[in-house]
Structure formats: C-alpha cells, structure tokens
Design a protein around this nucleic acid. Structure first.
Lengths: 350, 350
DNA sequence: TTTGGCACTCGGGGGCGATGAGTGCTAAAG
DNA sequence: CTTTAGCACTCATCGCCCCCGAGTGCCAAA
C-alpha cells in the first residue's frame, strides 16, 4: 500500500511539527507549515484516513494528531531528509575525537558525555569483540620472590596485567619455565579451546607449576571473556528529565533505572551498515517500549565492533541524531580501525 | 547553650518522625510518640521555643514543624542512637565484599550498586593516593620490531601497562639499554620530582633514546597523576526519584545532573576517623545545599584512602546509613589494607 | 508551669463554568 | 468525485470559589 503524495506531505508535516513542539498537531497548523494549497477541511479528511491506516493517533477527541510508532517508521524509512551537520557540530565532535586520550574505554566514556551534551539525550556505548580472540603472548615479570606480574597481549592488541602473589617462593628458573610453558601451550587459543587444554597440559607439567598455570590461565580467560562481554557505558541519564514526555515521574523513573542498571547489552549490535533506529514497541526491553533508540555502529581493528547511541522519546529528531551519531561512529572507526595498532591500550576497560 | 531534657526528647521525636514520614510533625503526634506525659499545648510551647532557637522550621503557618539543618546537626551530634545492623544487612554487605573480583575499581563500582540498592540512595565512591607515590619498576617487552609494551609497577603495588608503537625499528639491545636507563633514573621519583629530572637525563642519553624516554616517562607520569586524581564513581542516581522531596523535577534535576557529572571530588576526604555527615547547607557545592551526605572513609595499603557515601534529602536515617557505610568501609580497609599486597590489580582504573 | 479551650490560618482538594483548540459532518461549489 | 466553508460538538485546561481539617498561638484557669 503506497501513500499518496499528499498524504506523505501531511504525515511528514505532522512528524516534524510534533518533533519540535511535543504537542498534538492540528489541521490548521499543517495548512500553514506543509506548503499544501488546500483548506484545513481537506487536511482533516486526509488525517482521518491516515489515522485509519494506523499512522496517526489522537490523544483525545478534541486534540490534534500525533504520529504512531508506525507513522514514525514510515517517516524514518521514506520521508526523512538527510540532516547536514553544522560547522559547529562537526567541530565539537572532532574535538571530542581528538582528545588526548587513546584508551578506548576513556574515549567511549568521553564520547558518551559529549554526545549527551550535544543532543540532550542519554547515551549508551559498548564495545564487543568477536569470540575469535586469543592470547598471543604471555610475559611474567618477577617482583619479589613470592610475587610476579602477568602481562598478556591479545590477538587484537589489547594488553592486560595482573599482580599475582603466591604463598610459596619461586625461583627465577621456575618462572622462566612457566613462561615458556605458557607461551608454548596457551597462546593462539580461543576461549572455548582453553578449558579442556588446560587440564591436559596441567597434568603433564605437574608439581608446583600446576597451581600457577591454572592461576595464570584463568586470568587469561578472564581477559578474553571481558573482551567478548558487551558492557554498556551510559552517560547523561538525567537529561531525560528535560524532555516533556519524562516530566511525569511514572514515565521517567523506570526508564532511568533501566538505563543506569543496563549492565549487559541485550540488543544485537545492529545489522545494518550504518545507523539503526528502533522506534517505541520495536524495542525488546519493555522499559523502552515507549521510547526510541538511535544508534550507530563502529568497527575497530580486526574483530571488534561497538555501538554508540542515544535513548529518548519516540518524538526525536531522527535525522539529526542519525547524522551526528554516524559521523561520530565513522570517526571512531577511522581513529582506531585499519587493523593497525595506533595506541589502543585498554579497549573496554573498567 | 544546653537544651533541657524535654526539649531534647521533643526534637528527637520530631526528627525521627519526620525521617519516616517526610511530613511536618504536629504537637499531637509528638505526645503520642515521644513518651512524654504532657499535653499537646505544652509541646506547642516548647516547639515555639525550639523554633526560636533555629532548630525547627514551619513550612507554613498551619502545618507541623520540620527539623532545620541545625536541628539535624544536634540530632546527629547528640541525640542519635547507634544503629545496629540486622543480620540480613551484614550478610548482604559481606556478600558484596566477597565478590570474586579483586580489582579495586570493580569492587568500588559493585559496592556502589549494592549500597545503593540497600539504602535506596545514590552512592558515590572515590579512591585517592597521596602524592608520595613513585614508580618502583619499569619493564619493557618487545612485541614486534617497532612496538613494545611498557609495564610499570608503582610503590603502592599498582601495575599499569601500555602498548607503544614507534615509527622506527628498535633492536633488542636498544630496548635493553632503555630499560636499564629507565630503572636507574626514573624510579623512586614522585610526580613533582619527575619533570626537571627528565630534561637532564634525556640530554645525557640523547640520540634515538630521547623520544622513547620521554614517551615512557610521560606514560609513567600519567599513571602517577591518575593515582592521585580522585575520580568519583556514582551509582543509583535514579533512586533519588523514589523519595518525596525529589518528586518535583525542579528539585531533582539539578542534583541528578550534578551527581552524574561529578567528575573530580570537590570535597576533602573527611578528616574524622570514621563517618562524616554533611547536612544541607554544610555542603560546599550549591547543588547539595538542600541535601545531605553521609560518607565513610577507608584506607588501603600504604598511602591510599577512599571515601564511599550516599547522597539524599536532609531527612535521612543518619544512624542507619552511618552504620552501614562504616561497616562497609571497614570491610574494604580489611580487605585491601594491611600494607600487604593481596591482589589489587587496578585501583581506581577507568 | 501546665492545661483545656477556642479562634484563626492556610494549604489541599473538589466542584463548576468559561475558554478555545480541534474535530467530524453536511451541504454546496468546483 | 473532490474540495471547501460552515457549524455543532467534544473535551482538556484553567481559574475560581468554597469547604475542610490539621495545626497553631494565645488566653485564662488550675
């Protein structure tokens, strides 16, 4: 079913008006803003039809219309113009990208804050590595006679360390042996490949080394697990309160709680190439059923991706947000991508 | 000026009633709850006097009284009973402390969440090292011919690393040389001692090594700076909305914004031995003038301290909160303290 | 000094009518 | 068949008024 040109113009006018004012749009307003040269009565007839099609809603009988989620969806898919970033927007995003920090997680945290300030919406960001990562190298550094530092380098160039303390003393040769053993047997193994392997080798090189190996390897597994886990970083949650749809505490509180406790990403990192928009009921989490998400994906290095996005009322300036987020995401990809290793110390720390 | 015994009882009854109900307390209620065997008229006279002393306030003429900040202060200082933790409370705190994570920052984040859930107030936590820390050891691990990992160990047993990539190649001997040089000249130096030193030594061992040294040393300085900086971690900000005093958005929004953007600690880490309570206007930040803070201090290792606390309305159950927080703080101190090194990998990461 | 009594204050809530934006429908015009 | 002007109707919002009741301050008596 294809909408007539005029219906499209009307729907678009309603959406864009409503995005700005947050108030139901009446037929008269549309005559003024849509550019159509017809009377308000005609508009009213069209609006009634659009409502029958499920694209508009009426909060109550004597009010104007607001777009339904389906209406927004059509707007986003077919009617929306591309938004051009202003010089100022590009500039502040560029500044955020060129902060003197090079650790992924810090960039993400900062990025979230900046986007939140820019858009006045809460942001979320997460980085996730595919399960193909391995430890490419172990190093053991003796600290005292009964403590040493493990440093592991992963296949996607992340370095992690841990200080291990032992109940017993350890000679330099023992440490050396352990080091060789680790590098020989536990490198280039994905997380799944590690567990059974562990048992076998540990049996071979038994004795004192047993406990140590399992200690180090379990640390390595932690690191790999952490790389794969998609921890959500949020920022700017209180900005929600500045928008009229969250003025009532009943609507704001559950969503804010959800956001602030949003530990693991429940949603898949967007399948599309660039930006993904989820409108109201399209969201899986029930706390988001009345809200929308705009998110953009970025790719870093070999097998790490991430998403950065904003959460807000269904009435959002999708065009503008999509433009900003994808610009930002592209910046992140350029900055950390290329498979090269610029200086990503600690992707997805914390 | 010392209050009469009866005035104390009345003040206490008012505070404790108001803490529970969040509504102004009338003379009749006090007769019922205070245990005093006098009429409401007598209470009214006493209340009028307490109001003159600035310990009570009247929201409007025909309402009961509520405690003023000064009234709370007297309550906290003189009238408050020690709160005993219930078995359940101790248990959930203990559980939080014995989580299988041993990195300070993760413990802090988790701790914040747990306390926030327990108390229904937003929490904040921060760790800060005194400026006396130094790098006690450098290690350089070659990765490829033009990249290596720096691992530094600080005097308070924190390990940090960074992957450095170079435009030029580097031989193993050069790296070895660099390593020796670093350990000889840049260990056991506090942050302030580092800058001038840098220049001199860099001049000595000039040539190729110059750029490298400054690269590594500036990383070391970052690490030391980070140890000293008191980054505030917050959790449970939306819990504010569950309390009647923050039902109006005008009151909630500024405070929530303040909390979520609370980057650096503005307040000093509490001078007292255990718990510190800041009531309303006693706070320096203007966003906190209408709210209170209860915080407890913990000590870790040699020269690191931290604070964990909650923010809420002036009407808070100070006794209960103080008990919970100090129990928690003691737990943290026991767990990470003793100058020993249990396994604190990354204090105050992120 | 305490107490009962009493007039007074004032915020909150419910009821009520005016207002006005916006609609749906109808009948006439294009 | 489509568009338009006109009109009756709906209904949320706002201001207004009034009542209610909790709580006070004060006074006079115990």
């Amino acid at each position: 079913m294809e909408l007539s040109e005029r219906k499209k113009k009307i729907l678009r006018a309603i959406v864009e008006n409503y995005i700005q004012t947050a108030e139901p749009v009446g037929s008269k307003t549309i005559v003024e803003t849509s550019g159509l040269d017809v009377s308000s009565a005609t508009i009213r007839n069209e609006m009634a039809e659009l409502e029958n099609l499920g694209l508009l809603e009426q909060p109550h009988t004597s009010a104007g219309r607001i777009p339904s989620p389906a209406g927004y969806r059509i707007y986003v898919n077919e009617l929306m113009d591309e938004h051009r970033l202003t010089m100022q927007e590009t500039q502040s995003i560029n500044e955020a990208l060129h902060l003197k920090i090079h650790q992924m997680d810090q960039v993400l945290t900062e990025a979230g804050k900046v986007i939140s300030q820019l858009t006045k919406y809460p942001t979320f960001a997460l980085t996730q590595a595919s399960g193909k990562n391995t430890i490419s190298r172990f190093d053991l550094l003796a600290v005292e006679h009964n403590a040493f530092i493990v440093v592991v380098l992963t296949s996607n160039q992340v370095v992690r360390n841990k200080l291990l303390r032992l109940p017993t003393d350890l000679s330099a040769t023992q440490l050396q042996l352990l080091n060789t053993l680790l590098n020989a047997s536990f490198t280039e193994k994905t997380l799944e490949e590690l567990t059974p392997e562990l048992m076998r080798v540990a049996a071979h090189a038994a004795g004192e080394a047993y406990g140590l190996i399992s200690l180090v390897v379990s640390f390595a597994m932690e690191v790999l697990k952490e790389l794969e886990s998609a921890v959500v970083h949020t920022a700017g949650i209180p900005t929600l309160l500045t928008h009229p749809e969250y003025q009532s505490l009943n609507s704001a509180e559950p969503l804010m709680n959800f956001l602030s406790e949003w530990g693991e990403a429940t949603d898949l990192p967007t399948t599309q190439d660039g930006v993904e928009i989820l409108i109201g009921p399209e969201n899986v989490a029930k706390e988001l059923k009345n809200s929308s998400i705009v998110m953009a994906r970025y790719d870093i290095g070999d097998n790490m991706q991430g998403v950065i996005g904003v959460v807000g009322p269904t009435r959002m300036d999708y065009a503008k947000l999509a433009a900003r987020l994808s610009y930002f995401a592209e910046g992140l990809s350029r900055m950390f991508g290329k498979g090269e290793l610029p200086s990503p110390k600690d992707p997805a720390q914390e």
